[in-house]
Design a protein around this nucleic acid. Structure first.
Length: 609
DNA sequence: GCCC
DNA sequence: CAGTACG
DNA sequence: GGGCCGATACTG
């Protein structure tokens, strides 16, 4: 057993720049790519790598964001400029906080959305209300799922109030929905789990050897009835207010009934079958797994990384704060290794593996290289094996690909997060330009923004148009236009036009999406002068729903739903469509896709696994 | 690394 | 083709 | 012991 250290508890997952040499030799090796006899030669120049300039920038950004300074949660939703009627694909339930009411769509498999008005906002979004949100007229009724066309832009329109943003969905809210919905199936599944399978469950993975180490001393071990988790059909869960202000402590219970992936009655567990809100009670455990996942990615152990990813999904799908290792062990996706790590953390407040990573200079350097766009784990390890320590070292000795050059050029900028308010600002610029290039387009801002994250790493916009002829050449036009405008200052990669080049019969038949990964510079006076990553995707109308679904993520959600789709239903899923037996299925909307896949519809905000 |  | 990217 | 997302897409 690992030596117990006093719980310094603070395991800063943030890796610092290179520093101490207290590295652990052993682990270092793991990072070197080819066991290549890396010559000890060192490019000496250890310049002060790039340091973060974040501070000043943040101040700039702040001016935009200003709104809700603290409270990371409902961050920047209203971006003052009303004009922002950016597009949104509301199909998914765009929240629409009308005055003090929040309309929530019940998650249900076959029924259409049945709205439920809940007076949540006042409680969960205190500052929202304060916002001068002129009551969003945009009643959710606009179920018209669709979006916006560039048209509304016409300036003199009665500017529809700034649209309310996807709220941060907390587990509490999820519970509320489940509780009020008619998801009998899930409920029954859970009851089944509680009632008749505890024995099976116990048999399955209980008693990992390390169980004993748990401080709580046993009350849990074998303690039949099981800990809080399995007590009854109802869990007690911290209320939303608690989750958001967990630190403050006042906890009030909120009971819920819901089926969890802990079910042993189900076959395989797919993260896409369960809601995964952004705010998760076990964020500390998630952070640990994230760090380990990242480390495995760096070393090229992609399958190990994936395993940690599954653990993360399991944790995110689990609504209760985990206090005993048994709770974690019971989850599918958490096995021996991860279980042991969680047990260690719960006992000591620290995890040795993490500390070793943080203390390992090789890890820090690899991470630095890996952060460059165009540099993957292979190249990062190769550079490390050549003893490069900083990007300056690399620039001095390596020839870079085009995208790597851009990646290094904008290295600092790309590391900075984009607040929602700025995303909206950029989208507004995009919308205006798109209008000029091609009227009557429809687009949806996808990615983490759509999933409700307070800030994003980039902006993903999926565009379509009714006319297939138009979409075929649209991407090029868009990109050229914004290049001329000075918004797009670089292109990391871009689809070569669909038309030209060797067009095999097949490729002609296939409607391909076109994508351009660009570097965007805002011209808005309030905007921080930071170069941002903007991914522009053009899809034919027919593929639009799947493109939106595919570009909304999260990444693991996509992998999960595709795996599920393939193994359970035999349907191949891509961002172009659903395919069964070689035939493409007609997909009308995102909801329709879920329905075809026999999955309960999950709003984007619940796809954060 | 984890589940089948 | 391998490597990297996208969600 | 096999499988782990994609009929992905782009670059060189």
């Amino acid at each position: 057993m690992p030596p117990l250290h006093p719980p310094p508890s603070d395991l800063s997952l943030v890796s610092q720049g290179d520093k101490q040499n207290t590295d652990h030799q052993d682990t270092t090796d793991a990072f070197c790519l080819p066991p290549a006899p890396s010559a000890p030669s060192q490019p000496t120049k250890v310049m002060a790598s790039r340091q973060r300039v974040t501070s000043d920038v943040s101040s700039l950004v702040k001016t935009i964001t200003q709104q809700n300074p603290q409270q990371p949660n409902n961050d920047g939703r209203s971006f003052a400029e009303p004009s922002s009627q950016c597009s949104f694909h509301h199909a998914t339930g765009d929240p629409a906080i009308v005055q003090s009411h929040e309309v929530i769509a019940i998650i249900s498999s076959d029924e259409e959305v049945e709205p439920l008005v809940k007076d949540v906002s006042a409680k969960n979004h205190p500052n929202l209300s304060s916002h001068s949100h002129p009551a969003g007229p945009s009643a959710p009724t606009a179920a018209t799922s669709s979006t916006v066309s560039t048209t509304p832009l016409s300036s003199n329109q009665p500017v529809p109030a700034p649209r309310p943003f996807p709220r941060q969905v907390t587990w509490d809210q999820v519970h509320a929905r489940y509780e009020n919905s008619t998801l009998q199936a899930k409920h029954n599944l859970y009851l089944n789990y509680i009632g008749q399978s505890p024995s099976k469950r116990r048999k399955k993975k209980q008693t990992p050897s390390y169980e004993t180490t748990d401080t709580e001393s046993s009350d849990e071990e074998e303690n039949d009835e099981a800990p809080a988790i399995v007590g009854s059909a109802r869990f007690t869960v911290p209320s939303a207010s608690t989750l958001t202000s967990q630190i403050s402590g006042n906890v009030e219970a909120h009971s819920v009934s819901l089926a969890f992936p802990t079910d042993t009655t189900s076959k395989t567990y797919y993260a896409c079958q369960y809601p995964a809100p952004l705010i998760c009670p076990n964020q500390d455990l998630v952070d640990i797994c994230l760090k380990l996942e990242h480390a495995r990615d760096l070393t090229g152990d992609s399958m190990n990384a994936l395993a940690y990813r599954k653990s993360i999904a399991a944790l995110k799908n689990y609504p209760v704060k985990i206090s005993k290792p048994q709770q974690a062990w019971a989850l599918k996706g958490i096995g021996k290794k991860t279980g042991r790590i969680i047990a260690d953390f719960l006992r000591d407040g620290r995890v040795q593996d993490i500390e070793m990573l943080n203390a390992n200079p090789a890890y820090t350097i690899l991470e630095r290289f890996y952060s460059v766009h165009g540099v993957g784990n292979h190249t990062a390890r190769e550079w490390l094996s050549k003893d490069y320590k900083t990007l300056e070292d690399v620039v001095a000795h390596e020839k870079l690909s085009a995208d790597q050059e851009l990646g290094i050029k904008y290295y600092d900028d790309f590391l900075k997060r984009i607040p929602r308010s700025e995303v909206e600002l950029l989208v507004e610029e995009f919308r205006a330009g798109l209008q000029d290039v091609q009227p009557d387009c429809e687009y949806t801002v996808c990615g983490s923004y759509r999933r409700g994250k307070p800030d994003s790493g980039d902006v993903d916009i999926v565009v379509t148009h009714d006319n297939a002829k138009v979409t075929q050449t649209l991407l090029t036009k868009i990109v050229d236009h914004f290049k001329d405008q000075g918004h797009i200052v670089g292109v990391l990669s871009m689809s070569s036009g669909p038309d030209n080049s060797h067009v095999t019969a097949n490729s002609v038949l296939r409607n391909r999406n076109c994508q351009a990964l660009c570097v965007w510079l805002s011209k808005h006076p309030d905007a921080a002068k930071i170069h941002r990553r903007m991914d522009i995707i053009v899809a034919p109308k027919m593929d639009y729903p799947m493109a939106v679904l595919g570009w909304t993520g999260s990444k693991y959600f996509e992998r999960s739903i595709r795996l599920y789709s393939k193994t359970v239903l035999g349907i191949k899923m891509t961002s172009h469509g659903l395919f069964r037996a070689g035939k493409k299925l007609n997909v009308e909307s995102e909801r329709h896709a879920f329905k075809i896949l026999q999955l309960n519809y999950l709003e984007p905000e619940l796809r954060n696994c």
